[in-house]
Design a binder for these strands. Structure first.
Length: 469
RNA sequence: GGCGACAUAGCCAAGUGGUAAGGCAGAGGACUGCAAAUCCUUUAUCCCCCGGUUCAAAUCCGGGUGUCGCCUCCA
């Protein structure tokens, strides 16, 4: 079975074949660190986190790179507003980024390069482009000449002429073509700047990704991804620069996620309708946010609302519950007991669930379908656990499967410390004694007391089970 | 003006030619001392509308309608 991915360039699902055997290089455009990131950004981080984990789990040697844009207009403006340096602003928000992203269960990338640390390479790439006649300098600024790159518009599926006629912005007279874009910007008073053959200045936005991607992953990436609003102009421009300079294909597969909307509208910083993960984290378990993101296919738009998150919460609780029960049971089941006859059959069924999960994920990372598999298995498992003495092997293997899938999707991590303190333990035992004596009033009083302490009791065929609310 | 996405039950959401997954919410039942958790049953004669192709379409084609997006910084 092979993995298929939807490629923005061809607008089709294609078989996924890495350029270099089982090595996979992924570059995802990261945040501009002028502020906390919002939940729309979070979707991208989560989506690529899952893609990366899944490919790794499927046996690929994955190298994942995600940059930080730490110099641009927004950075400069924000730093000025706050009265700090651009570097300080970057440092502050990068730290916040890692905190928020960790809460969402997103693993750090293998490399998190920063634009400001790759100026030399950017200057070199710009020089190459000038030498090749694809870029030109005007009064300390350097522009990429879009008509010089024949396939320009390929990614956004728009011929150059159409892009021009739809342009909503006044054109800089000094540019040879309206769509030419800045590779290097001349320093304005008070701005951070670096030395270059064209005088002091700073890089344009797109050049950093071209440089950092190829530096860490080579001239041809396997997967290049990001938000849908990066298709044009950002990725189109990156592609033009890189392919213009190397003559090689920049990325085999371009992957773009769908928007996260709010009130049916795109959530974006410029519209001001955004909610930061930092804020949402205060009210909602970030695991629920992650689950919410994965409950729809990554290319479809999803609408964000507090109500929807709540719906999601119940579903996730159901899965967490079954995993929790399996773990709890494993502690209680005897070690060397004769296995019941249906064990082989159960294990075979489990294998089918695994195949279904793989089929779903192989098909362009269909996490929604993948989760449905887990829900089906949860139902079957719960039913099985009604047995007084379920098979230890079945419980073990089922739990292992949930944990394995959990390691891909980012759920079911073991909770630290399940130990009860002496007092709680005594209460539970007291209730059991009361129940045996059929003193329901006393038993219920104890249960209520535990409830007030945030502990829920469940009487199961295998004994009393408790969990934190 | 150009390009594109989406439209499936009360809500969320898979499915892209073979006769509607899954979740949430609701209803009924089982289990339980009562709960909780869980299980079972039930909730779309039908997938925005109108045509067409086909033995067969939610799925393909044509035409509409609606919503959103890109063409400017944005994930």
């Amino acid at each position: 079975m092979t993995i298929r991915v939807f490629n923005t360039v061809t607008k089709k699902k294609e078989e996924f074949v890495p350029a270099n055997k089982n090595k996979v290089g992924i570059y995802a455009c990261g945040p501009t660190v002028y502020d906390f990131f919002h939940i729309g950004n979070a979707r991208i981080f989560i989506v690529f986190d899952v893609i990366r984990r899944y490919l790794r789990w499927r046996g690929y040697e994955v190298k994942f790179v995600q940059n930080f844009t730490d110099i641009d207009d927004k950075m400069i403006n924000r730093a000025n507003e706050l009265g700090i340096t651009v570097a300080e602003l970057a440092e502050r928000n990068i730290e916040a980024y890692f905190e928020d992203v960790q809460a969402l269960g997103v693993e750090p990338a293998d490399f998190h390069p920063k634009a400001t640390e790759h100026i030399t390479e950017m200057v070199a790439l710009i020089q190459t482009l000038i030498e090749k006649g694809m870029a030109y300098e005007v009064e300390g600024d350097v522009y990429f000449h879009t008509p010089a790159f024949e396939q320009y518009g390929e990614l956004s599926n728009q011929p150059l002429a159409e892009l021009v006629s739809g342009a909503r912005v006044d054109v800089d007279e000094r540019k040879k073509h309206p769509l030419d874009f800045a590779l290097w910007k001349k320093q304005k008073p008070g701005e951070p700047a670096w030395e270059s053959p064209w005088g002091k200045g700073r890089p344009g936005w797109h050049i950093e990704c071209s440089v950092m991607a190829s530096k860490y992953l080579g001239d041809t990436l396997d997967i290049h991804g990001g938000g849908p609003d990066l298709i044009f102009p950002h990725h189109e421009n990156e592609k033009a620069q890189s392919e213009g300079a190397t003559g090689k294909k920049f990325a085999k597969y371009w992957l773009h996620a769908g928007y996260l909307n709010i009130n049916q509208e795109k959530m974006s910083k410029s519209l001001g309708n955004f909610m930061t993960v930092r804020e949402i984290r205060k009210h909602v378990d970030p695991e629920v946010v992650r689950f919410f993101m994965l409950s729809a296919h990554y290319r479809n738009p999803i609408n964000y609302s507090a109500e929807l998150l709540q719906q999601t919460e119940s579903g996730l609780a159901r899965l967490n519950n079954v995993v929790y029960n399996l773990r709890d049971l494993l502690e209680k089941l005897p070690q060397n007991k004769a296995e019941s006859v249906d064990v082989q059959e159960k294990l075979a069924v489990l294998l089918e669930y695994r195949q279904r999960f793989i089929a779903a994920m192989d098909d362009d990372f269909n996490t929604a379908d993948g989760l449905a598999v887990l829900f089906d298995l949860a139902r079957e498992t719960n039913a099985y656990l009604q047995n007084r003495e379920p098979s230890r092997v079945v419980v073990e293997k089922t739990l292992a499967f949930f944990e394995e899938v959990g390691s891909i999707l980012g759920f079911f991590a073991k909770e630290a410390g399940k130990e009860l303190d002496v007092k709680v333990n005594a209460l539970i035992e007291g209730r059991q004694a009361a129940r045996e004596a059929k003193d329901w009033l006393a038993a219920d009083a104890i249960r209520a007391e535990l409830q007030a302490m945030g502990i829920v009791l469940e009487d199961t065929p295998q004994g009393v089970r408790w969990r934190k609310k």
